[in-house]
């Protein structure tokens, strides 16, 4: 369908809709749950505690260095399940397309959804496609929902966090948002930065299988970055987290861009990272397991839980101490 564009009639329910769904969308995700194209995907019986999540994806540009909105829509939902300790069972895929969107681009986005779903070992069980008039959307919006089954005997337990526990970040921070910023802002900075968008299910489930309750709870530091997620973790576990600035993993290229633009990588979004609060005694072994995995190579212990008022503090590289708070509004480039 090279050169073809999405038309309003692709969303009107007639033959064009049917063709788009069958020949472009369902064809790619072929599996026994989806393929009958019923009004619901029938998942059969699920054993265990069920996790359920949903997220909308509206990123601009839709295709960016290191991934695209399709890979993001699958990985984001898989990771929301994974940090709750859930093995993914099925995801949905709801597309909102803007009239005039190139079919070829849609196909490449669906291809990367397919690859990400395969990598995450999950089926696309149901979907929906709507077309809106030109100007009423930004090319393509995707919403996915996901169902998973919790790792046997484990559930997130922020109440079990104790002083002496360690905070682990599964890799470098800020890559996703730095890649998007550069792609979006015509900043004329040439930096080789790719989004970290990746499915973390198999890595995190392996950690849970090996360490169980030694892992207190996990978060994926997406919007707001590590800084915001850690504040939320400190709040929900009523604990004080002390970070060590020297140990925070940041890719050199991301650091460079942040230095130039005045951004703090602590508050830049990630799409393939997890934060874990773990038993202090098991922390080194957990790091060992993570570093053996493709998406955990740069995992690091970035801080510890200490006595004191709930909140996040940081021991700075030069030995000072400061608060790490929620940011207010967008980060802005410096003007002076």
């Amino acid at each position: 369908m090279a050169g073809d564009r999405i038309l309003l009639s692709h969303g009107e329910g007639g033959k064009r809709t049917r063709d788009l769904i069958r020949k472009v969308i369902a064809k790619r995700f072929e599996n026994p749950v989806l393929s009958p194209l019923l009004d619901s995907g029938l998942l059969g019986r699920l054993e265990g505690e069920i996790a359920f999540t949903t997220d909308g994806y509206v990123v601009t540009p839709a295709i960016f260095p290191g991934g695209d909105i399709g890979r993001l829509a699958v990985c984001g939902t898989l990771n929301d399940l994974a940090v709750c300790g859930a093995r993914p069972v099925a995801i949905s895929c709801s597309l909102i397309l803007e009239e005039g969107f190139p079919v070829e681009t849609l196909e490449s986005i669906l291809d990367s959804m397919k690859v990400a779903a395969q990598e995450g070992n999950v089926v696309v069980a149901c979907g929906d496609t709507k077309v809106v008039e030109k100007g009423n959307a930004d090319g393509i919006f995707i919403t996915t929902a996901g169902i998973g089954v919790l790792h046997d005997g484990w559930r997130p337990a922020p109440e079990k966090v104790r002083p002496g526990d360690r905070v682990i970040l599964s890799g470098t921070m800020g890559d996703h948002q730095a890649a998007i910023l550069i792609a979006r802002n015509r900043l004329e900075i040439s930096a080789n930065i790719e989004s970290d968008v990746a499915p973390l299910s198999s890595m995190l489930l392996e950690v849970l299988a090996a360490f169980g309750g030694k892992v207190r709870f996990m978060r994926d530091p997406t919007r707001g970055g590590v800084g915001v997620s850690l504040n939320e973790m400190a709040e929900s576990s009523r604990s004080r987290i002390l970070l060590d600035e020297k140990r925070l993993p940041v890719a050199e290229s991301v650091r460079g861009v942040c230095e130039i633009l005045g951004f703090d990588p602590l508050y830049l979004a990630n799409e393939g990272k997890a934060l874990l609060i773990v038993d202090g005694k098991a922390a080194d072994s957990i790091i060992g397991t993570l570093r053996g995995k493709r998406y955990g190579r740069d995992a690091a212990i970035i801080g510890e839980v200490t006595e004191g008022q709930p909140g996040v503090l940081m021991r700075t590289a030069v030995g000072g101490l400061r608060a790490v708070d929620y940011p207010v509004g967008d980060q802005l480039p410096r003007i002076c």
Partner: peptide
């Protein structure tokens, strides 16, 4: 100065 916690040093 604030970000690096210098005052306290």
């Amino acid at each position: 100065i604030a970000r690096n916690g210098i005052r306290a040093l």
